[in-house]
Write a protein that binds this DNA or RNA. Sequence first.
DNA 1: GGAGTGTAGGGAAAAGCCCGGG
DNA 2: CCCCGGGCTTTTCCCTACACTC
Length: 320
Amino acid sequence: MQPLESVTFEDVAVDFTQEEWALLDTSQRKLFRDVMLENISHLVFVGYQHCKLDVIFQLEQGEELWIEGRGFFQSHSPGRESAFKEELLATQHISKKDTSTIIPMTFHTPEDPCECNDLGEDFSPSSTLSQHLLTHTEKTPNISKQYQKSQSDQSYLNPHKQIHSRGKSCECHLCGKAFSNCSSLRRHEMTHTGEKPYECHICGNAFIQSSDLRKHNLTHTGEKPYECHLCGKAFSQSSNLRQHERTHTGEQPYECQLCGKTFSKCSALRRHERTHTGEKPYECHLCGKAFSQCSALRRHEGTHNGEKIMNVFSKYSDLR
DNA sequence: GGAGTGTAGGGAAAAGCCCGGG
DNA sequence: CCCCGGGCTTTTCCCTACACTC
């Protein structure tokens, strides 16, 4: 297997000039902060030990990031000059370390700025996402004096983990997630161990829960027990029916944080978000042109097929 | 006008995971 | 404590329609 490409912080960082910063409106500045927090969370995740929690703290507090005479990166650790940037750049090549000891986490995205998937809870700008990150990394970061001062007690070490455990007695020793009973914990632990005791005798697919296997079996039998009372359409899973029902009700619970456009399903929102990010993950292997949607690529590839057919025709006519 | 492309609506299938009740 | 059903969330793939540009 090929080693992963090294990534530098500069690859993902944007350093605005004062003029550029002034041109940004509130939402754009907020997006910038979110993206910076996202990037820093990635650094923490890959094991970067010198995570500047004071920087994170400042980002979370929404403090002014630009100071006259200095760029953004130089500005937010007064007295430490450009220590932040230097230290981040010092990492230069942040190759993916051995992450076997690092607990997998769901990254916080700009669209879902500061949400903990475990509880679905939001971290307000004034809360401590930085603390929350620690609960996932289990690492002891190089905490700045400034930050330590603001966290004079030791509660910063794992406050969010305590929240997870509140009122719950069984805690996963791998990810810290807590459950109200230990059988739930045991089942959850299978997601870490890969243990899947329920196997489909038809296709060999295995599942953690018997109910998942039953659900899967419906794909073999073709049974669709969930029927839309409005149009009669049937579905194998209730959630798929619910998804379908939104086409009748017009419900659009997924909102783009950047433009406010709403969507009936999560995947449509994700797809839409690529129009903001410019992400084009689908690339034509013939001409290299990239597309934001798989179907757009397919359609495009059809134009190459047309070219091929034309080439065949022209060759044929040459032979005559 | 037609080809190509960007974008979005929606269907279908499937899997992962958690919760609560029996 | 375990089993089970139900529910929520997410992902992937697909087809299609409409608007726009060249």
